[in-house]
């Protein structure tokens, strides 16, 4: 990272190649599957770290990096326009993207439908719970890393995860029972 902040192009390429997909996956899920928005936030996150010029030497890279990304996503959530758009979403686009790799049209539709349910369930969580669930189960962060990223106590991380997972179950369980 210090090489990037010193203007090293090769170091920047290595940094972006290494983190692009993970960061995109994180922000994509955080913003409810809005592909262009996730791309914008990824770009803004990288720009933000380049413009900061320095990095706190006492904190590990990953929590610092994801803290910036999370804060940018939060800023986005706060805007009034987003609140209006949040209900509508671009579900169709997300469904299409999710079904790209599958073979048959029926299978694609089924997977897209299931993915959509999870997406909707996550979207129903409030932002605080969604962030910890995504960091924990999609990004595989340790509890300590989540605490450092969000700058909250470890106990708060655990309680938010507990509440978040219980709420997910409450939303997903009836759907599962209906399908069974």
């Amino acid at each position: 990272m210090s090489a990037v902040l010193a203007g090293d192009q090769a170091a920047l390429a290595a940094l972006v190649t290494r983190h692009h997909a993970f960061l995109f996956g994180y922000l994509y899920r955080l913003v409810g599957g809005d592909h262009p928005l996730a791309e914008d936030l990824v770009q803004e996150t990288f720009l933000r770290i380049l413009r900061q010029r320095t990095r706190p030497s006492d904190s590990p890279f990953k929590p610092w990096f994801y803290k910036i990304a999370t804060n940018l996503a939060r800023d986005h959530f706060k805007s009034a326009a987003v609140r209006q758009r949040a209900c509508k979403g671009n579900e169709e686009e997300a469904l299409l993207q999710m079904s790209d790799r599958t073979s048959g049209p029926e299978e694609r539709a089924l997977i897209a439908e299931r993915g959509s349910e999870v997406r909707m369930a996550l979207a129903q969580l409030s932002e605080d719970y969604r962030v910890v669930v995504v960091l924990r189960f999609y990004q595989e962060f340790s509890l300590q890393e989540i605490a450092e990223t969000l700058q909250i106590p470890l106990g708060t991380v655990k309680s938010r995860l507990s509440v978040g997972v219980h709420r997910l179950r409450a939303v997903l369980a009836p759907i599962q029972e209906g399908m069974d």
Partner: peptide, 24 residues
């Protein structure tokens, strides 16, 4: 069941092209 699409190589290159001018 909810998978995120992965950025393609072209996406990464486009991002790098956007970031490069911002390098100190």
């Amino acid at each position: 069941q909810w998978q995120a699409p992965q950025p393609s190589l072209i996406d990464t290159q486009r991002l790098l092209a956007r970031l490069a001018p911002e390098l100190p």
